[in-house]
Design a binder for these strands. Sequence first.
DNA 1: AAAAAAC
Length: 618
Amino acid sequence: MRTSWADLAASPAAENVAAGSSANNCSAGTTSAPGRSAYVPPHLRNRPASSDPPAAANSGPAVGNDRSGHVGSRWPGPKNDYNRSGYGGGSRGGGWGSRGGGWDRGRGDREMNPFEDEDDTEQAFGEQENTGINFDAYEDIPVETSGENVPPPVNTFAEIDLGEALNHNIRRCKYVKPTPVQRHAIPISLAGRDLMACAQTGSGKTAAFCFPIISGIMKGQSVQRPARGARTVYPLALILSPTRELSMQIHEEARKFSYQTSVRVVVAYGGAPINQQLRELERGVDILVATPGRLVDLLERAKVSLQMIRYLALDEADRMLDMGFEPQIRKIVEQMDMPPPGVRQTMLFSATFPREIQRLASDFLSSYIFLAVGRVGSSTDLIAQRVEFVHESDKRSHLLDLLHAQRANGVQGKQSLTLVFVETKKGADALENWLCHNGFPATTIHGDRTQQEREHALRSFRSGNTPILVATDVAARGLDIPHVAHVVNFDLPNDIDDYVHRIGRTGRAGKTGVATAFFNENNSSIARSLAELMQESNQEVPDWLSRFAARSSYSGGRNRRSGGGRFGSRDYRRDSTFNRGGSDYHSGGNTSSGGGYGGGVPGGYGGYGGSGVTSAWD
DNA sequence: AAAAAAC
């Protein structure tokens, strides 16, 4: 049994220090590597994959058992006793017999139960609630839709015809009722409409785009995927996301949703050996989750064809553009063999809607519905924000004080999960090292670490084995780590948007959280927007911060949220200033939310309802 | 200026 984080936290600090001598991960010596949630090929168990394109038959015996030991240890027996009727082989093209033989029936090919990890974690954290979600936090979330013939939202999963298998998985996920983004987005997608949506990860966004995709694939006409070269695969759905960890996360969730359906989900991202990913692909893929760079690589090698894509989802689209992915994304969507808008179904998720995103929407979507969902609980209710004035030279000892206090207050001396954001990769390593040498098991995630190290760090943090994670902005957006109690902005970002994303790593799924920021004279550029944000969120703004804010000459520009980022960012098709001659911008909005501010105009805060409910910013 | 992302 692996060391729990409680044990670790309780263990003498010296132990951790000793282990810390190995530079980059002080917890490595005291904790066994947590159960690797490495991808183990699902879905080939007692029903040979009928969904594979012809090429898949060539793939491989070689990989049949490569992780069987691991599978066996996590999942000692076959759990194939579920009623598998419902969506059957009938809906998918032939091929049942083509894989006959022994290898695909081996243990290694049984679908690992993707729900096991979660149960472990919940137990480790000793939480009893069944849902893990504070539904009250969802009650007041503002939602706006526009577009033509918007399908009405649903109030329960039962109202939606997602099919028996998916419903079963929804129950296993303990989802009791749909979140606002799910209530609206799922009917829209099931109706076959394109969607441009503003919503955060913690709001159930992943499920919102996965459910319709999975359901659509299961119900879809069986298609004979062409055999273009023995090794090309033809996914039916593509989900793009900006960071590797986010892709992993989406993949893991999608696997839960598609458990024991015949839908196969595969993930591809850089920094990991491509051969392993190729093998997974060759065993068949219905839904491909990928980061843009690796996907372009796969496309150029003709390992993947997008010819059969029926669903395209772009997650964190604004972030992808920020990171310079637009050329790759356009290449993937427009210059390869993907079916055009209107033929495929496209879902675009973005936190903000600057002009580049508008352009992307007009190019990628067809007659789409615009959906904006307010932040879950907003930063208002669920995240207590504190700002402390800390000189650069005092930051470390101040952090230590916080951590000591936190440990002392914790139940049974447990260290609750704390995410510490710093500005630079070097700074991340240095702080991690220092924390380790001062008795606080920490690890770090940033772009200079190998993918293996990044993944290990994240797992170790999630599981509580290493309850402190020092991170750069790679971890700022989208990552959904349950139970993060405290986000520390050791170095404040220069952009208030980044701040909001960072603190959004706590207070997830309706739980409460604390965010502490270390502020000093180096951060005056963010003073004003920070003070305004806190005020809107009904947080106490220290006088000294107000004075900094007043002194700051900024009244807009880069350090304020752009108007398009707020909740209520409206459907730009109604904006006459955004009429790109002759494109299909005529479908009027059908809600009454007032438009009126131009795309690039920096707006004030808190447009919606006058409260601190700002935007769905994830 | 820093960060992220393919080999």
